[in-house]
């Protein structure tokens, strides 16, 4: 089965027409439990998310800070797994045929699930791309090339340590968009350095016409607005999973406030990106 839906391309084209940056929201599948996570996911587009970075939980997320680590742990503790991640995506797609969903995570759960089986099931469930943090270009044969063969976008990360000499290597086989990691660090631990991001994006755009999303360190409406003046999309994760965490009861269970806590934050961030260029 090949990928044909092109939701990322359509989304970025629409954003360009509107002359604004998009808002990508990261949540981990099954956080804090399968039912609440699906309810959160379904509420994201209405709250202003233009695309969803959908985390596949992993026990050892080595590029993530404490917030996303805890989010993975909550999901796994509640029975999260690759099978359930894809089931949640399938359930989301029953109602939503347009919002791009990019699966984001680490390679081992995919490798154990089986690369070809994973690609088939992910495309069938309605995924629009993959971000796999621990698969650099040097390991393209594992998953990137098989995904590209099926036209499924493989979104690569570029970082402050990716210099001009290395950029072409990173850009080869990158599709959907390029994810620029705004800080040399793990998720959620530092604030986005706007001036450096502006300079970095100017550098990146000399090498590529592909849309560029910026993530790591965007927590507030103001930061989203600032990044939204230069990026094609702002991606927010740690602040979102922190909102989930803060809404839970003493035993870590979802409450009546959980979905609302996420949508309130997302609406706020969405206002930020929508006003960025006005």
């Amino acid at each position: 089965m090949n990928y044909t839906a092109s939701r990322l391309d359509k989304c970025f084209a629409a954003l360009k027409d509107e002359n604004r940056a998009g808002l990508g929201i990261f949540v981990t599948a099954g956080d804090p439990d399968a039912e609440t996570s699906l309810a959160i996911m379904k509420a994201l587009p209405g709250a202003g998310a233009d695309m969803i970075e959908f985390g596949m939980p992993f026990s050892d997320p080595m590029a993530d800070g404490p917030s996303v680590q805890a989010s993975s742990q909550r999901s796994l503790k509640a029975g999260g797994s690759m099978v359930k991640t894809l089931a949640q995506l399938r359930a989301f797609r029953e109602d939503d045929k347009t919002t791009p969903v990019v699966l984001m995570g680490y390679y081992n759960p995919i490798y154990i699930y089986g690369v070809e089986r994973f690609l088939t099931d992910a495309i069938e469930a309605g995924a629009d791309g993959l971000i796999v943090v621990d698969l650099p270009p040097e390991e393209d044969e594992e998953l990137c090339l098989p995904a590209v063969k099926r036209n499924l976008p493989f979104v690569r990360l570029a970082t402050p340590t990716t210099d001009d000499a290395r950029l072409p290597t990173v850009l080869t086989n990158t599709s959907g968009f390029l994810y620029y990691v705004s800080i040399a660090g793990v998720t959620g631990t530092a604030e986005v350095p706007i001036d450096m991001v502006t300079a970095a994006l100017a550098r990146l755009r000399k090498h590529t016409d592909i849309p560029i999303g910026v993530g790591f360190g965007i927590k507030t409406k103001e930061q989203a607005a600032a990044v939204g003046t230069v990026a094609d999309a702002c991606i927010v994760g740690s602040a979102v999973v922190d909102a989930i965490r803060d809404s839970l009861d003493g035993s870590g269970k979802a409450t009546g406030k959980t979905v609302g806590a996420v949508t309130a934050l997302v609406s706020d961030l969405a206002a930020g990106v929508r006003n960025a260029r006005s």
């Binding site: 080595m62 590029a63 390679y107 943090v133 621990d134 698969l135 650099p136 040097e138 390991e139 690569r156 990360l157 570029a158 970082t159 402050p160 340590t161 990716t162 210099d163 290395r166 990173v170 990691v181 040399a184 660090g185």
Partner: peptide, 20 residues
């Protein structure tokens, strides 16, 4: 040259670390 012993080994790290 890519650090593989048969199918084992390799360089499965985040891009931030790759240059280093």
């Amino acid at each position: 040259e890519n650090g593989h012993f048969g199918i084992f080994g390799g360089r499965y790290v985040a891009e931030t670390l790759m240059p280093l």
